[in-house]
Nucleic acid binder design. Structure first.
Lengths: 337, 337
DNA sequence: CCTGGCACTCACTGGTCCCGAGTGCCAAGT
DNA sequence: ACTTGGCACTCGGGACCAGTGAGTGCCAGG
């Protein structure tokens, strides 16, 4: 249906529109790209492309702009991921390697992504459900209160205050701690519920009530709100010009953890990079944006997802390249620690 | 210099402009407020107010709008803090009380402030330098790596990986842990450096090198970047209409932890609420915004600061009331835990 | 010191005109 | 059958202009 030249025209339109943010006409197309045909020919091609829904004109007698469908074709078939130079890769690597704890890794990843793509960056903390427990700690706060701290092998630290039904002394805390650690250390979080069921049997009947309180909070912490930790950065990269219905809508969506969860949830874990363009996002408020996401973590063990959000008029090759590269390096860093 | 009526006029101008965002003229003033004088009289008053720099007109033959100086006078002398109803206070209290850890308290505080004021909310984590150590934990990651976890009495948890110069076994870790806890538990973080100087003597010479590594990381963690944890929320409340030079500048400033630190640093700890209006903020990028801040924590023990950022055209009575109330309740919640 | 009257200013609105980028279509050329 | 140059047409946007009205400053009189 679409011969080579028509595809080239579509590519050229996308590229020009991305860089200028203005509808692109047949004349300027032949000038800027060395298509060896006349503007009239291009016009015919554009008519076909428009009929098929790949491009549209904002009003008669204006140039064309790509539709979501046009961007989709561009991303799938017409663009090559822009690779990073060796120097850039080194810069990324050293910047991330300078981090000294998980929070810092995530923060740096966000900044990096935002800076590389000049878009809004979204990074999810390593998913609890895919982590394993490295250590469980109980700290006495008062006679009736303990602080439960769970440390995962990805460096994530979750803490909760536990209100105990009865008084606790140091000995029983120590006992409880060792039971918890011996049973849970090294276990994947997904296993925890089943293991926890087994726990009550392993403490003396005197501590039964207290232990139960701790277990229930433990389960709540790890299973309940679980994956809801997402960091956003680079919101200042949003330019009002790109969002006709105002960018407040977009800002709002980006502040809702729940929305972001849904957004990242739609990203395919297996494929390298997922691109969702415009209305493909069923998240209200992000209908006019594109989202480029990737999972990160070592190949055998996906940890979580990250990505960028920007106008559909986005430099996809660069964005995809950056997301892929950052996902890879962040995964590496976390695998090492 | 300014008699009562002129002050009333200024107050009326501020109130009207805040609610309508349009320059306010003499006629509409006498209509909306029951000033029992003629527009002409008001005009004379306005001329004086303008001469003194409290108001200005965007162009000839338009109404007046307040200047920074005008807002300042309004805030200092003309406005009463808007108190919250009992029902609202209860709602705030229960919303905050539902939090189950420090992160959650801070997150809820941000959301609350943003929602109450319809502005951007900024909340600083309880300052490390004003906290005391509740517990120190060492977790073995590998033969040469420990995870150092410090828990403060405000519920803050800081963690760092320590690369050990030599191998460590479980016994020496246990020893180190107990030394750390016995020496540091209950100490204010500000005391830590001096106490730490004393620590090396208390471990056997065999562990000396390892202990030194842990201590140095400990100091770095607690003293180094220290207070740089600030959360921002409600950015979608920024309306482009309020910022003539574009709100990207504002968004940028709000993403820079360093900038926010400086901003909050200028807030007076002792007084209840600090208001900085427009150009009073020497932070570039926030020159066209006002910042309302307060310290929170129990009376005898300030923990950190929080506040809101919005256009100078802000509803100060409400904002000040909300910041004050939220600061109080958040302080209470944290004092209890 | 307040007030009504009056002349003046000036942003804003809507109408008109014109320009030009861009289009669609067609007939001729390869 | 595709490509091309030519040509008439469309329409958004900028320039220009006049009318309107909200608002002002000033002044003379209460």
């Amino acid at each position: 249906m679409l011969d080579d030249r028509k595809l080239a025209v579509l590519r050229a339109i996308v590229e020009d529109f991305v860089s200028t943010n203005e509808p692109v006409g047949s004349k300027s197309l032949v000038d800027r790209h060395h298509l060896d045909v006349s503007p009239a020919t291009i016009r015919n091609d554009m008519a076909v492309l428009e009929e098929q829904g790949y491009i549209t004109q904002p009003h008669t007698s204006a140039g064309r702009i790509p539709t979501d469908k046009g961007y989709r074709l561009f991303v799938d078939k017409l663009s090559a991921i822009k690779p990073f130079s060796a120097a850039e890769r080194r810069a990324i690597e050293t910047f991330l390697a300078g981090a000294y704890d998980l929070d810092d890794v995530v923060m740096r990843t966000v900044r990096l992504l935002a800076q590389l793509t000049r878009q809004v960056a979204v990074v999810q903390y390593p998913s609890l459900s895919k982590s394993a427990i490295r250590h469980v700690e109980l700290v006495t706060l008062s006679r009736r209160k303990l602080l439960l701290v769970v440390i995962t092998d990805t460096g994530r630290v979750e803490q909760r205050v536990v209100e105990m039904p009865g008084d606790v002394d140091e000995d029983s805390v120590t006992g409880l701690r060792s039971v918890l650690n011996s049973c849970l250390c090294g276990r994947a979080l997904s296993e925890v519920p089943s293991v926890a069921a087994d726990l009550p049997r392993r403490v003396g009947p005197a501590q039964h009530a207290n232990a139960a309180a701790v277990f229930s909070v433990l389960l709540e912490t790890l299973v309940g709100r679980s994956d809801e930790k997402i960091v956003v950065g680079g919101a200042s990269n949003l330019t009002p010009a790109d969002f006709s219905q105002g960018l407040n809508e977009v800002l709002e969506a980006l502040e809702e953890q729940v929305v972001l969860m849904r957004l990242l949830g739609q990203c395919d874990e297996r494929s390298l990079v997922t691109v969702r363009i415009g209305a493909e996002n069923d998240v209200q408020g992000l209908r006019s944006t594109s989202v480029v996401t990737a999972g990160y973590g070592s190949a055998d063990r996906p940890l979580a997802k990250l990505g960028v959000v920007g106008p559909t008029r986005m430099d996809y090759p660069t964005a995809i390249g950056a997301v892929r590269a950052v996902a890879r390096y962040t995964g590496q860093i976390l695998a090492e620690s």
